[in-house]
């Protein structure tokens, strides 16, 4: 009886658990295998601009081909300091952007979480509203704002705060501003979710025990918002490392980020293996913080606020 009842339930579980795996297999693992294949190939003049390694499933040819596996592209990556600088530049830019976004987004998320419950949906929609227009258009808009004769300089000069225009456009500062702007909602939303879930009585208990509002923030609100801080930071940091559009449009000659290098390898130099290898290394770099986050989440079991009965 029990066994007969269990079978359909188990089948259902397999489907439910299997679907996400299938999804990941089809839309993550398979494309990644294709990129890896290109990365392990020799570059060549022609169409496609590389000599495919795995273009057959015949085991004999395949095993023979495996011996032809080329780490050329990776070797070039290591040899050319441009790549290392670009990786470091990207990581530094992403880290700075993540920090600035966090500092700006936390007060906003806190303000939304503490606002009138009827007002909150509207405020959240306003946070997301910029997504309703194309990201490209919004980045272009920042050119208009930041360039020497742009809105920002006009306004500052009009107010008499500056005499000469600030050169922001085509600098790393402009890239930072662009990334912070573009990824702001990704930071606000997880922070809001974490702050909104906090039990108000914990803050009252802290105040009751003698904590002034700022101390309540430092000792209760901030530590308990940790899951949101971690999630938001990763959601900004990871895409920011690989960001291509913003440094390309707002950056200048001093801007070196792996996304733009990758792009020019792919389209300008037509060196597909090098571009693919750069992408694989980028992925490997980002897997580190992701794994760290996963571990923290497991440990968080004890950290997340739990309702007392």
């Amino acid at each position: 009886m029990i066994a007969r009842h269990r079978r359909p339930a188990q089948a259902g579980r397999l489907v439910v658990l299997g679907l996400p795996y299938l999804w990941l297999l089809a839309f993550f693992l398979a494309p990644f295998a294709l990129v890896l294949r290109v990365a392990l190939s020799q570059s060549a003049l022609g169409r496609p601009p590389y000599t495919p390694v795995f273009d057959t499933l015949d085991p004999v040819i395949l095993s023979q081909k495996l011996r032809e596996l080329s780490l050329d592209a990776f070797a070039r990556l290591a040899a050319d300091s441009l790549y290392l600088d670009a990786y470091l530049g990207s990581l530094a830019m992403a880290a700075a952007a993540t920090f600035v976004t966090l500092v700006l987004a936390f007060p906003m998320a806190l303000a939304i979480a503490r606002s009138d419950a009827r007002l909150r949906p509207l405020l959240l929609v306003l946070v997301i509203a910029p997504f309703w227009t194309s990201a490209l258009v919004r980045v272009y808009a920042f050119i208009m704002i930041l360039k020497d004769e742009g809105l920002l300089n006009l306004a500052l000069r009009g107010l008499g705060l500056i005499d000469a225009p600030l050169h922001i456009f085509a600098t790393n500062t402009a890239v930072l501003i662009g990334i912070v702007y573009a990824y702001f909602p990704f930071m606000v939303l997880p922070l809001y979710a974490a702050l909104d879930a906090q039990d108000k009585t914990l803050r009252e208990a802290a105040a009751d025990l003698g904590a002034a509002p700022l101390q309540v923030l430092a000792r209760i609100t901030l530590p308990l918002a940790w899951p949101g801080i971690a999630a938001g930071s990763l959601m900004v940091f990871i895409p920011a490392v690989g960001e291509f559009v913003i440094p390309d449009l707002l950056g200048g000659s001093g801007t070196l980020m792996i996304g733009t290098v990758l792009w020019s390898d792919f389209f300008a130099n037509r060196d597909w293996p090098a571009a693919a290898a750069a992408a694989v290394v980028l992925l490997a770099l980002l897997a580190g913080p992701l794994a760290l986050y996963e571990r923290l989440q497991v440990k968080d079991g004890a950290l997340t606020p739990r309702e007392t009965p």
Partner: peptide, 16 residues
């Protein structure tokens, strides 16, 4: 936070 009074909350409100 400046009153000479302390409270035991119904939910206990222990810091998790």
């Amino acid at each position: 936070h400046r009153r000479p009074v302390n409270m035991m909350f119904q939910s206990y409100a222990l810091f998790p």
